[in-house]
């Protein structure tokens, strides 16, 4: 085991994959000389040179389209969006070109691109720079959508994403970049589509992804003091969603709270609960609950921002509701 930050884990994953496979390259704004807007690509230019670590102009629609085209032609691009808010400029290329071409070409054209960058709220950067796009991308067949929480997730899932033959949306979190975790030594590769149980418990299942796993674990500690043992599931992947792990947990706990940083309408919580109703309805002893962002653009003021995002105390209240305590 070695302790490292999520930022280092992402960097190591890219470096290891670039050493392993000549076709892998990194492209995006400020990824090379600046070493990454959030310093995720620190040292990569030095090791791999300007031919494989490529600074782009500020031109998201264009460079994402270029990376997607390069993937169709046999390369393995890692396309960094400085934040996923800017990926909206490239949405047409992501959905209409990357996601759909394999199917509509009858399996002829593959698109092994990784589209990665920070997603969701950061710290007081207001509405246009603070949005969780997990449900947007999760909606689309043809995409894989990965939401790492820990440094192990970051490293193991990014390496898997680079090796995956499909377009993968890799949603990181800026606040988690500086958080340290223990990571196994060596070639850590995790399977896309498998959730992890981060804390076992028998009374309630709390499902989260990305930074909401941290909030769920905080809530679980608070609940333990009240005598409620919460099981915390880290989804790791939004699409394909690991429904069997959720149902198996629910079979033990019979109660469910889903936490997401996005808005609740047509969100990940809605999807998880629909899946549970389809495939695990008889396990439910109480209506499942959602904890999500308030239904407003994210405000700037610190107190309002905190109130608009899913915090541990709101998760605790939701757990008490579904446990009838």
């Amino acid at each position: 085991m070695v302790e490292m930050t999520v930022r280092q884990a992402l960097r190591d994953a890219m470096a290891e994959e670039m050493r392993r496979d000549e076709r892998v390259f990194l492209i995006g704004e400020e990824v090379a000389e600046y070493q990454g807007a959030y310093k995720v690509s620190q040292g990569l230019l030095e090791e791999f040179g300007a031919g494989r670590v490529i600074d782009t102009p500020i031109t998201e629609h264009g460079f994402a389209g270029l990376a997607i085209g390069a993937a169709m032609a046999g390369l393995r691009p890692i396309n960094e969006f400085m934040t996923f808010n800017f990926a909206m400029q490239a949405m047409d290329q992501i959905i209409n070109s990357a996601a759909k071409t394999l199917y509509m070409s009858g399996g002829e054209v593959r698109c092994p691109v990784v589209l990665r960058g920070p997603n969701g709220a950061a710290a007081r950067v207001a509405a246009q720079h603070s949005q969780d796009f997990a449900s947007w991308f999760g909606h689309v067949p043809g995409l894989k959508v990965v939401t790492p929480w820990s440094a192990t997730d970051a490293k193991g899932l990014l390496k898997a994403a680079v090796r995956d033959p499909n377009p993968t949306i890799f949603l990181e979190n800026e606040i988690l970049y500086g958080v340290s975790f223990d990571v196994s030594d060596g070639d850590v590769v995790l399977e896309i589509g498998k959730a992890a149980i981060e804390r076992p418990g028998r009374d309630v299942t709390i499902v989260g992804y990305s930074i909401t796993v941290s909030r769920a674990l905080e809530a679980a500690s608070m609940l333990a003091e009240e005598g409620v043992e919460a099981e915390v599931i880290n989804l790791r992947t939004i699409r394909p969603l690991d429904v069997p792990t959720i149902i198996a947990s629910l079979a033990r706990t019979n109660r469910l709270v889903v936490v997401e940083e996005g808005w609740s309408f047509a969100g990940i919580g809605a999807e998880v609960i629909a899946a549970v109703c389809d495939r695990g309805f008889d396990h439910l002893d109480a209506p499942p609950a959602r904890v999500s962002a308030a239904d407003v653009p994210l405000p700037y003021a610190a107190n309002l921002e905190a109130a608009a995002l899913p915090q541990a105390d709101r998760i605790v209240r939701a757990v008490r509701d579904v446990c009838y305590v």
Partner: peptide, 11 residues
């Protein structure tokens, strides 16, 4: 158009 530039990039 950007897709085609990507193919040229790969070449």
């Amino acid at each position: 158009v950007p897709l085609g530039a990507g193919i040229a990039f790969a070449q």
